[in-house]
Design a protein around this nucleic acid. Structure first.
Lengths: 339, 339
DNA sequence: TACCTTACCGCAAACGTTTGAAATGTTAAT
DNA sequence: ATTAACATTTCAAACGTTTGCGGTAAGGTA
């Protein structure tokens, strides 16, 4: 093997035929005699010829690559989504190119540029927390590149979307707290410019209302990281009204809150019950293990890819659609048994 | 914008010049008059022309893409490595294509095929646990594609490598346990066909020996997942000889072991001290937080990319080199204070 | 006038592949 | 013998870009 890659020309030269004959033979074109086809296929197998995807792309105008922008790969939810994306994309003959925005608006913009200049056939995005201007995404749609948002979606741009049923999931989680006896439930919330954060809060509020529990402003606290929990949670237990339940916008925050609560001397779940959101690896690490709302990230990823590829290969212009993935409450040790 | 992408031809047609002139103008070729250069650059800016990377690749024979194969993205260590890979790769003008082997040999082989047929310029690999045949990697080097192993390396193939100083890290972790008073230390080990597992065990053994503590066969147990911990760890405390320390091959196993130990009624760190390996997010979630050996995954990723790109762009054929990243013991709450 | 510079620009080939059209060769029907 | 019909193969253009070389016009020199 002195040469990097075998090309169709090498095959042609060896067989004393033209490159186009080789190409057609490989495609089973009816013009080509079966003798020639056989000879070509044998040599192709022997020399392990593989068509150059770059030349294919140049010709076909498609890169067979999809771009993905996620906030941070280290988060369990996003890594499961990525697994789903990967699996279906590769099975469908597409490659995947990842970019992390690292929760930074500038990096998100740069990621869009990178992906666009890579000529990806479509883009999958989950917004970063601080994004409030969406021009970089309009840039994508103006270039007629299909775009699908998942989880942290943008409702200012008309695209396909895949979301988790955050409102229902939150409702179910908080309802479970209520059924188990909690009456003073704290909600550790995300930034409300993110729809997922708003929807989870809405589910929290609805669960309280449907159970005739007053919704108190001071029980809804912006707190969606472990660091924030360390500065915010201790204060919540210094008032006269003692919380007996916590519903956190994600597992990491819930886990940190649990540690703080325990160190304050409360028993989990007996004095304070806790429900998180995501139900990943983290929920088994806490002690007790964390009751949490499973988001089915793998399915989210697969569905997002399915929509995107449909759009990429779609002949007709369907109206944009939004797929809602059902959540599932996974009850573990951080909430009391319901008698 | 009726057209998907502006090409150099569009620019040329609009300006009434030839495509080659446009190309040269953009490259600052001395043949081109400054007036033409100016006109071209203005229109390029106005129309937001970006050269097509696919055409560039066809011409230049390079895809400016590197492939990465990791066992599982969900593991904190690997996601930090990927962050490092991404950051440096993009800064160096390379794209990144990920494949997960999911700890499956077949998927690892398939990932290599995928990457090779994508004509990546180089490949970064961390082996999956069960791989014992390395022919698919030989395939890479035979095609003259640079290959760099990181963390879970393969010593049967001559390549650049980036490893963590597992032996020294383990030595330091176990020494810390000993200094804090532990004498009966369990090692929860990985599969010994992985060098990292063997090296960590070697560090454990050396620490015991240098402190004149007998090394007992029965104290070294294959156990590197949470599931395995649940079936293995309880048995370790049913003997007459009670362990007072645990050194686990990774944080996940350490965290699960901690839960089990606590539920058996032991205090951590007072009765049993625990040291993990990786020191990621997990180490802050356990209660108490987990003393662990930091692996600096981000640096591992950057270094691996640096070596790979050097090799891709390298004029001369340097001998293969192995970079060793120093570990760092991060002392938290699962071990007793020393002194 | 004849020749040479200089400055600028376009042509064409190349990268690997596909594909409709054209060319070649063969056979059979007129 | 001419031609139609067919089978098989090759040609050439195209995708977007780069680049060595050739070309042209303007001006300068002898």
């Amino acid at each position: 093997m002195h040469k990097a890659q075998v090309t169709i020309k090498d095959i042609a030269r060896e067989l004393g035929i033209s490159p186009s004959t080789v190409s057609k033979a490989l495609k089973g074109h009816p013009d080509i005699s079966s003798a020639t086809k056989k000879a070509v296929k044998e040599l192709v197998a022997k020399w392990n010829y593989k068509p150059d995807p770059i030349a294919l792309s140049l010709k076909g105008g498609q890169s067979k690559t999809i771009g993905v922008i996620v906030p941070e790969i280290v988060h369990y939810f996003f890594s499961t989504v990525i697994s789903g994306i990967e699996d279906l994309a590769y099975d469908s003959g597409y490659h995947v190119m990842f970019c992390q925005s690292n929760e930074s608006y500038e990096r998100e913009v740069k990621a869009v540029e990178t992906l666009l200049s890579s000529r990806v056939d479509g883009i999958l995005v989950s917004l970063c927390k601080v994004t409030r201007n969406f021009d970089h995404f309009r840039n994508i749609t103006e270039n007629r590149i299909p775009l699908v948002f998942f989880d942290r979606i943008c409702d200012e741009i008309e695209t396909d979307r895949v979301i988790v049923d955050d409102e229902a999931g939150a409702f179910e989680g908080v309802s479970h707290l209520i059924k188990s006896g909690c009456r003073e439930i704290i909600h550790l919330s995300g930034p409300l410019n993110l729809l997922i954060a708003k929807n989870r809060m809405d589910g929290y509020v609805r669960a309280l209302k449907e159970n005739n529990i007053p919704v108190r402003e001071e029980n809804i606290v912006k707190c969606d990281t472990a660091e924030e929990a360390r500065s915010v949670v201790p204060g919540l237990f210094d008032k006269t009204r003692k919380p007996d339940g916590i519903f956190a916008v994600n597992d990491l925050t819930a886990a940190e809150a649990m540690k703080i609560v325990k160190h304050k001397g409360y028993k989990v779940p007996d004095n304070v019950s806790i429900v998180g959101f995501t139900s990943g690896m983290i929920s088994d690490l806490t002690d007790p293990s964390l009751t949490s709302v499973e988001q089915h990230g793998y399915i989210v990823g697969k569905e997002a890819v399915r929509l995107l590829i449909n759009r990429i290969e779609g002949k007709e212009d369907l109206p944009c659609q939004t797929t809602i993935i059902k959540t599932e409450l996974v009850v573990k040790g951080s909430t009391r048994k319901i008698g």
